[in-house]
Every structure is written in structure tokens, then in C-alpha cells.
Simulated assay, not measured.
Amino acid sequence: MIRFRHLASAAIFALTTLSAAAQGEKNNWYFGKGAGVVFENGTPTATSSRLFTEEGSASLSDKDGNLLLYTNGITVWNRDHKVMPNGNGLMGGKSSTQSALILPKPGNEAIYYIFTTDIQAQSNGLRYSVVDMSKDNGNGDIVTRNNFMIAPATEKLTAVRHSNGRDWWLLAHRWNSNGYMAYLVDTNGVATEPVMSMVGIVHGGPNRKAIGYLVPSPDGNRLAAALWNDDSSFEILKFDRSTGKISDPIHLKGFSQAYGVAFSPDGSKLYGTTNNGQMNKAQIVQFDLRAGSAEAIAKSATVVATSGSPSIGALQLGPDGKIYVARKDNYYLGVINNPNAKGKTSDYIDNGFHLGKQKSDLGLPNFPHGLAKQSIN
């Protein structure tokens, strides 16, 4: 029995080590006003880039942490920070919350998809372009641009690894509808028809309600969305990674200008950013997802921090297990140092990470869930 325990412990350690070693896809962040962060062995270092964006961006690296490409939804840069061939003119909007998302094509290591969303449910809608990384001496080339998927759509855009550990579900939301859309992305390409889930509240009305993040939980089985407006809210939903269906919405009401959302690494907490421009009061709210019923989760809302910035935006979980907070026009990112902890013991630091000579804006790079996961979960 003792020997078995030792073997089991060694196996768990090995799996943990392998998992940690295969997390490099999210190591390079480019966002804001030429700002960047590079994570090496879990340690962040400030850098700079060619990218300027008010809100959305996306970047992707290989499993070892080497940069592949990045974009603001309009222009695409390669690993050398040069515009890719045909890398201008994508139909995202740099003032769209999640203007872009990069997905590797299952079964083809050279092909990547760049999905884009237009600003505030405008006519460009949801589209995708295709990158062939085998071209231009391995630096990549855009081989098709702006393939139409649907319009109008909100600014919400994320992806979750399929339960088969190979394929993807691309997730977005229709405008003036309560319809969440899940497009299968597999070895055949991007599905032309999504799995529709008519669930939760209608995302519609004034175009500003198209603003706000959509993100998955660490296990991919839950989603959270922010709906930005003067009288706005958050949604929490369940996601079936086998079927693409979304269900069981929890509506969290009354959070002015809700924008960013992020789950804690253990999935027990949800964080959201709220703003009130008239009062210059930007706050981070925490919800306890283990509180019990939907009503109990709503009642668990706790303001864990108020920022010195009048506006804060995206929340993004880093490779180091901390949650980073975008502060508009600021040389610092906020940092939640212990996001699994309850209330203010989560330890938010407003001037948590210095960006050097570059400034943050409202966005941080958009990543899919499950980049390093290749097994059934």
C-alpha cells in the first residue's frame, strides 16, 4: 500500500508537471496602447508591441511559449511583429470587446482561424479568416479573409475545447435575441450552422448592450457573460462540451456597466468589473459559485476592490494563477493575487503590474479554453 501511494503520488506529480509545461500557448499578451506582457516560467515581464486597440485583441503562442501571431481584429502581426501578407483589412472592430479569437485547426498544425466580431452589433457581424503558418518562411500568411458567419451579433466571442479533446466549440451570441450560438470547429473546418441555445435574457435594445465579455470556466463546463449598460448585469450558464448546448442561466442584476468577467482557477468564484463614469467608481465584484441556489449566488455578491481608475475593463487569468485587470489609460494593470480566496482576502492590488512605457486600455487578449488539453474531461 505504501509503495502504491508513492507510485500514485509520483504519477500525479508527473501529470502536473507535464500540464504546467504545456501551458505556453497563453504566454504572450499584446493589448492596449502598444502594451505587452510575456510570461516565462510563470513570471510576467513587461514588453511592447505594434498593436494598438481600445478593447479587443488576441494572441497565440506555441506550447513552448514562442509567439506565433497576434491581432486587434483588423491587422494581424507575425512572430517578428511584422504585418502578415494579406494581414490588413479584417472586419473586426478594435473597439469591440472581444474583437478577435485565434483557434488552431484540429488535425492540421499549420492552419489557424481568426474569428472576429464587429463593434456594437453592426453589419460586419461574426466572420473568420484563415492563416497558413507554413507560408512566408514559417511566419504565416492570411490565405482567406472575412468569411461571413452571421450578422448582427454581439461583441461576445470565446471558444471551449470539445469533450473529445480534439475539436472546438466557437461561442457567440445573436443580437436582439436570447440565442447563444455554438459552432463546431473540427477537421472539416468551421460548421456553417451553429447549435442554438435559446436561453437566458435577451441581448438587445440599445447597441451598448452588445458590449461585454463571454468567458468559460477553467473546466469548460460553465460560461459567464457581462451585459454592459447603465442598468446592466451578469449571466452564469452551464455548457455541455459534448453537444454544444447551453442551459440553466443565472441572472445577476443591477451592476452598472458590467464589462469583464473571469472565473477563479478552482472555479469557485466569479469576478466581474463594473463602472459608473458619472461617479468615477470602478469596482470588482466577486460571486461565490458554491453558495448554493441561484438566489444564494446572487446574494453572495461582494465588492472586493475599488480601483483608482475611473474605468476598468477586462479580467484575464494569467499562467501564474493570478487575475489581471485592465485599467483604462494606465501604466499599471490591477492584479488579484489570490482569486480562489473569499472576499477581500483575494488580495487585489490596483498598481499590481507595471507596464513600463506603455498603457493599458479596456481590453486584454482573448484566449480559448482548453488550448493545452488534449484528452477527454
Rank of each mutant, 00 (worst) to 15 (best):
E235R: 07
A291H: 00
D347V: 13
G334Y: 14
N275E: 02
N330Y: 08
E295S: 10
S293M: 03
A305D: 13
A225M: 15
N280F: 14
D347T: 15
K342D: 12
G318H: 06
L270N: 08
I349N: 13
A294L: 03
K344M: 08
N337F: 08
D320R: 13
I236Q: 04
Y271A: 07
G244Q: 01
Y324P: 07
A341Q: 06
G272P: 06
S293I: 09
P319C: 00
I312Q: 04
L355F: 08
L315K: 11
D320G: 11
G267A: 05
L333F: 10
R327L: 15
N338S: 08
G352E: 06
I236G: 04
P265Q: 06
R241N: 05
G267D: 01
R327G: 08
N276K: 07
D231T: 15
Q278A: 15
K344R: 14
S264I: 06
K253Q: 10
I312M: 03
D248Y: 10
D231W: 10
F263E: 07
T345H: 11
S311D: 14
L227Q: 13
A314S: 12
S232T: 07
S346M: 02
R290H: 08
F287R: 14
A314Y: 10
Q316G: 10
F234M: 14
F263S: 04
G260C: 12
A282F: 01
G272H: 07
R327M: 12
G356K: 04
S247W: 02
A258K: 06
M279G: 11
T274L: 09
N337P: 03
I323G: 01
K342S: 13
Y348V: 15
S309D: 09
N337D: 11
G292R: 01
G272K: 09
A341G: 00
S293G: 06
V335A: 06
Y332W: 11
A291P: 02
G254K: 04
N276L: 09
L362Y: 08
R241Y: 13
R241A: 01
S233F: 12
L270Q: 05
K238H: 06
K328H: 12
Y259H: 15
L223R: 03
P249H: 04
I297P: 00
Q283M: 14
L270C: 05
K328Y: 10
A314I: 07
E295F: 01
Q286M: 01
N338R: 11
A291F: 01
F239E: 05
K342C: 01
